[in-house]
Design a protein around this nucleic acid. Structure first.
Lengths: 348, 348
DNA sequence: CACAATCTTGGGAGCGCTCCCAGATTGCGG
DNA sequence: CCGCAATCTGGGAGCGCTCCCAAGATTGTG
């Protein structure tokens, strides 16, 4: 029996593979095999190695390992937003939780990188790109790209496995994960039609983001199905104020509006506020449908009918896709759409 | 002049120090000196090395460097919350932004680690602790510890530089950064007294968090100064509903309350909602003061008088403290309190 | 019982870098 | 013109690990 205090065990700094080998009475190679769970080790050897590891509190030196394997066991999460907006967004919180849960058990670390501008228009994008493409991480998850930033494309071309969250605007080879925003918009429109509404407006998201476009297009499809006009459209950013402003504009331009599909719950909240301010009853005068099914949906009065997307699954799926690619799996889907579903509450 | 395409430059994979040396016509050592900005290199040598680096697109291999220097150039951000709550919290978003900005130019990466439980009560805390104390990161920032988790203490004892965000409940040697919550509470109380209020209540934060206790104690101090009673106290979690419930309880128990200091804006929002529901006018019947000066403060009606804490500075200060410690600076303050100030708006 | 096939094991080489030390070069006063 | 310090440069060793290959141990088979 080996005990701490044995001459063989005594030691100064962090234990190395070599010392584990000495204590276990085997060679470096054998210890390495045990650690990496490789075959070709007798039960006896395996046991004494594990015992020695426990005894010494040995933890492999990642740097040394990384140096030879050319893997870093870390992946980057690139967030290309000023930070404030993203991080206070419940959507992002859910995605992050999903990523974390998707990473559990994979023995990989998450390196967080914000793409920021320093106020002089100088971003850290170049530096970030260099870092990412230099083998510091095994892969990257990129979320909330606006417009058609070609960063993911360039990274992928540089040989780095990349998965994008949210459909990129410009067609690209880079795999992405997204909610089925089109179907979500479609469901919202159909639902409002079924409710007997005929003058259905929408407050769409930003016109330069796929998430805005896709939901709008889905809504249009639903309207066309019912042979209804699709002219009551206003774009807004994702904020309460934006939603309120957009609602006001809609009411001014189309006083006969009897329903509105807002591209996000937060926008719907603004719309509800404006409607209430104008004395419109919800849903009788104007029905409202949101998108996201975030906490907001159930914390306003009336509670929102909304299109649910499973944000946590979003993050988990991105992670899964990336890890699968890293593992060299074949026939992986280039992109993945996650289902959305309608949740009916009081506002419609 | 060296050109890409020269025989000396041609190459297969990622360039190494050695190749840069060859191209530049100097030795490994000289290149290393240039890269690490060490003295003792002639201008001529330095130039040709830089030229070669540019030419080859050389980026140092962090693993190799880390292996010998025993530094990783990365620090951990440990968040010990279920994730959802923290990440959707604007406070945390600001802190994260501050950390990021504090890290800018330091050439260090942020490794994000969530302390999560898997629903069976099994956390990843042990694994996380092992990882952190095994030299995978140079230091750690730990935020939102609840109660008196001894993780930071243990990490610090293990030799890892640690800075905690928010005063730990139990006394500890670990340096921390916090807002001056005591003074914040004091300012709020004094302000309400000055406004002529005499029956001033408080909705305090959780009794097991320093942030809750300190603000409460500050309020008590302010009340004592004015010789006012400090019995109208109710604790609440940081949520709108909690705030509303707490306000209801206060009104039931002390119908004569004419002012309330809420330990957070989000709680104040709940209080405002409850007050409005009961037909109380703000600030005439009951004045309200919040804490944080988050976006909430200005997005409710009436806009909140609140105690401002500079969240971004919070994160930046944590980072600074950690980096300074890593740099071996002496006479560093064990803990740092950031000033809070009163922002008067409509609710008081 | 000899020999092949299989399973285990150990040692060497080398990943790309930093750091130390010794050697080469230069400057300058005696 | 030499000596000695100051400046600059190069090579070796080694960080802790993985991976390859050869050698040893064990088992099976004619």
């Amino acid at each position: 029996m080996i005990e701490p205090g044995d001459a063989a065990v005594e030691d100064r700094g962090t234990p190395t593979l070599e010392e584990v080998a000495r204590v276990a009475g085997v060679s470096r190679s054998t210890v390495s095999r045990v650690i990496n769970d490789l075959p070709g080790v007798s039960g006896r050897a395996r046991e004494s190695v594990n015992e020695a590891i426990r005894l010494l509190g040995y933890v492999p030196n990642e740097a040394a390992r990384s140096l030879v394997t050319r893997r870093t066991n870390s992946i980057a999460l690139v967030v290309s937003e000023p930070g404030d907006r993203v991080f206070s967004d419940p959507f992002f919180a859910g995605v992050l939780r999903g990523i974390h849960s998707g990473l559990a058990g994979s023995h990989r670390q998450l390196v967080l990188m914000l793409m920021a501008e320093d106020g002089n228009g100088n971003g850290n994008g170049e530096q970030l790109e260099k870092y990412l493409s230099s083998g510091h991480v095994d892969g990257a998850l990129v979320v909330s790209m606006h417009g058609d930033d070609a960063l993911p494309q360039r990274l992928a071309e540089g040989g780095l496995p990349v998965v994008v969250g949210g459909r990129p605007l410009s067609g690209t080879e880079v795999p992405y994960v997204d909610s089925d925003n089109f179907t979500g918009g479609l469901l919202a429109a159909r639902h409002l039609v079924e409710r007997g509404k005929r003058r259905i407006a929408t407050i769409a998201g930003p016109a330069d983001m796929a998430v805005g476009i896709d939901r709008l297009v889905g809504w249009r499809r639903g309207m066309s199905e019912a042979k209804l006009a699709t002219d009551a459209v206003v774009h807004s950013d994702f904020s309460v104020e934006g939603g309120a402003r957009a609602m006001a504009e809609l009411l001014d331009r189309h006083p006969d509006v009897d329903a509105v599909f807002a591209a996000a719950d937060i926008v719907a909240v603004g719309a509800v506020r404006e409607l209430s301010a104008r004395g419109k009853r919800i849903p009788d005068d104007v029905a409202v449908v949101g998108f996201d099914d975030s906490v907001l949906a159930t914390s306003v009065t009336p509670q929102l009918t909304t299109v649910r997307q499973t944000v946590e699954e979003f993050g988990r799926t991105m992670t899964w896709r990336l890890l699968a690619q890293l593992a060299g799996e074949e026939y992986l889907p280039p992109s993945i759409l996650l289902p959305t579903e309608l949740v009916v509450r009081q506002s419609s």
